[in-house]
């Protein structure tokens, strides 16, 4: 095995060991914590707090979607109530956001952008409810970044056909490597941005909960939660989806 592979494996081992051991004194868990492990094909895998909070979030979103769908399709003739008005507001705002940056192609990408928007938003807000934000785990944000990356690349190829490969060698052919690096760095920077922002919030909150005496924890932590989880979380959700759409728009327009 190469040295790099060894190092990566060591880092994973340290992460797993830390995951198994780390305990914080507060209600917020700062590190990814292993809940139980299982062995598959000779490798040890961990079910961590990230999986659990992600599972809760996905189930919540699915239940919400099912209720919303039932509400809209079952009684289409009734005068819409509060719930349906809120739903329509959410959908209209999301549609407006996608249409604002993608223009005529917005209808192709509304589903994807809406889905990652909902998942990342609820994932970032999960810290308020004492769950560990799944987006504070690089294992969650890297797949999100890769999904966006493949969406961008596949659609670039679909819209530009072979001109896309030519556009990589523009304006001069010797710039091809730097253009390719620029493309490959998109998922890395997207995922690291989200990960770093949410992780820094989680770490600061766990430091606060771990260091402060008990009477100082509650009165001031609402401010940190409001800033780190709500404000920063909403901004990062918006930034992730807007950047995906900006990169996409560069390719398909």
């Amino acid at each position: 095995m190469t040295r790099c592979g060894n190092e990566a494996k060591e880092i994973m081992n340290v992460l797993a060991a830390e995951a198994a051991q780390t305990e914080t004194s507060g209600g917020i868990v700062s590190m990814v914590k292993g809940v139980f492990s299982y062995t598959l094909f000779g490798h040890e895998f961990w079910i961590t707090t990230t999986h659990i909070s992600m599972f809760i979030i996905v189930v919540l979103l699915l239940v919400f979607a099912a209720i919303a769908r039932r509400k809209i399709t079952k009684h289409p003739d009734e005068v819409p109530g509060t719930f349906q008005n809120i739903l329509e507001l959410i959908v209209e705002k999301l549609d407006g956001m996608v249409a604002g940056s993608l223009g005529a192609n917005a209808y192709r990408f509304r589903n994807y952008i809406g889905t990652i928007f909902a998942f990342i938003l609820v994932g970032n807000l999960a810290g308020i409810f004492g769950l560990r934000s799944p987006t504070a785990d690089f294992g969650t944000t890297l797949p999100l970044g890769l999904l966006s990356f493949f969406l961008i690349q596949i659609n670039a190829f679909r819209f530009q056909k072979l001109r896309y490969f030519k556009s990589l060698a523009e304006p001069y052919p010797f710039l091809l490597p730097s253009n390719v690096i620029g493309e490959v760095s998109v998922p890395i920077s997207l995922s690291l941005r989200l990960f770093g922002n949410v992780l820094s919030g989680t770490l600061i909150l766990s430091l606060w909960y771990g260091m402060m005496p008990w009477f100082a924890k509650l009165p001031a932590s609402w401010f940190l939660h409001a800033y780190m989880d709500v404000f920063s979380g909403c901004i990062q959700t918006y930034v992730f989806s807007m950047l995906t759409m900006t990169y996409l728009n560069d390719k398909i327009s």
Partner: peptide, 30 residues
Amino acid sequence: TSTMLLGQAVAETTGLYGLLVAILLMFVKP
């Protein structure tokens, strides 16, 4: 506002790389 937020998010990336290095040094102990 949306342009400003996008620009700020991109500008923030270098700081986040520094933060990641700090976190790796402190918690992962390479």
